[in-house]
């Protein structure tokens, strides 16, 4: 019996059940009903084809392990998470990498998902190719759904080339001008006093862009992010920053020390969300207690 079938049986057709990844963002979207059985998804890379730029793997595979395997071929995926996070967890949370402006959104990474639904059936969504509009886009619906619509068993992800070099610069210049002055910077952070910009790509390009940034008052710091990001995310709105927060100006996310309220769901969207949950998991047995609408971003 293969790992996927084993996983399907462990979900089963009845009773509350929750899937555990690296528990790195276990608090997001509400706590799991203690009644729920805890299970884990299959682990391990099944196929990695650099010239296809896809990788097929168990959803329980740690992100770090995947990154290491891809690095050997000079590739990466546009997913991010704290150390220990799993691929399935990163997809279920759906947060973009800090480098989104350069490498794209987490919502565009998932090509195919083999997931187990609330009836305990194994479902295939999407397909293995890098381009595909065959049928409804279940993959995008599943990313960021916190496992409430189905549990990822194995997935096929889109990979991309790693940049030749990465360079962080920082300085006291306000961040707004960097959105337009620089061609596709990977990240622009602002903590109220300092701006940190991440450049990546070919060495010569990065160095020339860095010179432009030097002229604007930034200095090269290192190849690592010079700022420490507080743990909780929320949508960045206008106005001055509070102490201890960092704004990801490029992607409109604010990192703060305290958990933030989720934005209010409009009645129109709520009606659709209710139908969604009813369609996919009428009994609410998958990850009970979780609700993506309660995530702050």
């Amino acid at each position: 019996m293969n790992a996927l079938e084993e996983f399907r049986q462990s979900v089963g057709p009845h009773g509350p059940v929750a899937v555990v990844g690296g528990r790195t963002r276990w608090h997001l979207g509400g706590s799991i009903d203690p009644q729920a059985r805890l299970i884990t998804a299959p682990q391990g890379i099944e196929a990695l084809d650099p010239s296809e730029m896809t990788v097929s793997l168990g959803a329980g595979t740690p992100l770090d392990m995947l990154d290491e395997a891809l690095a050997e071929h000079g590739q990466e995926v546009a997913l991010a998470g704290p150390p220990g996070a799993t691929v399935g967890g990163a997809l279920a949370v759906g947060h973009d990498s800090l480098r989104r402006r350069r490498i794209g959104s987490a919502r565009d990474v998932l090509l195919q998902a083999n997931y187990v639904d609330a009836q305990g059936e194994l479902i295939k969504a999407g397909g293995p190719t890098v381009k595909n509009v065959t049928g409804y886009d279940l993959c995008r619906l599943l990313v960021g759904s916190l496992g409430t619509l189905g549990f990822f068993g194995s997935v096929i992800l889109r990979t991309r080339p790693r940049p030749e070099i990465t360079m962080w610069l920082s300085g006291p210049t306000k961040p707004e001008c960097f959105l337009t002055e620089i061609y596709r910077p990977a990240t622009i952070l602002w903590d109220g006093k300092q701006t940190a910009v991440c450049l990546e790509g070919y060495q010569e390009d990065v160095e020339k862009q860095a010179q432009k940034l030097h002229a604007l008052g930034l200095e090269t710091s290192s190849d690592l992010c010079p700022m420490v990001l507080p743990p909780h995310r929320q949508r960045l709105n206008g106005g001055p920053l509070k102490n201890g927060t960092v704004a990801d100006v490029g992607s409109s996310v604010l990192y703060g020390p305290q958990p933030a309220e989720a934005p209010e769901t409009t009645p129109g969207v709520q009606r659709v969300v209710d139908r969604l949950r009813h369609q996919f998991d009428p009994e609410g047995r998958l990850n009970p207690g979780r609700n993506p609408q309660r995530m702050s971003t």
Partner: peptide
């Protein structure tokens, strides 16, 4: 203007 929380409808 930023990442929307919740299901990606």
């Amino acid at each position: 203007e930023g990442p929307a929380g919740g299901y990606d409808l």
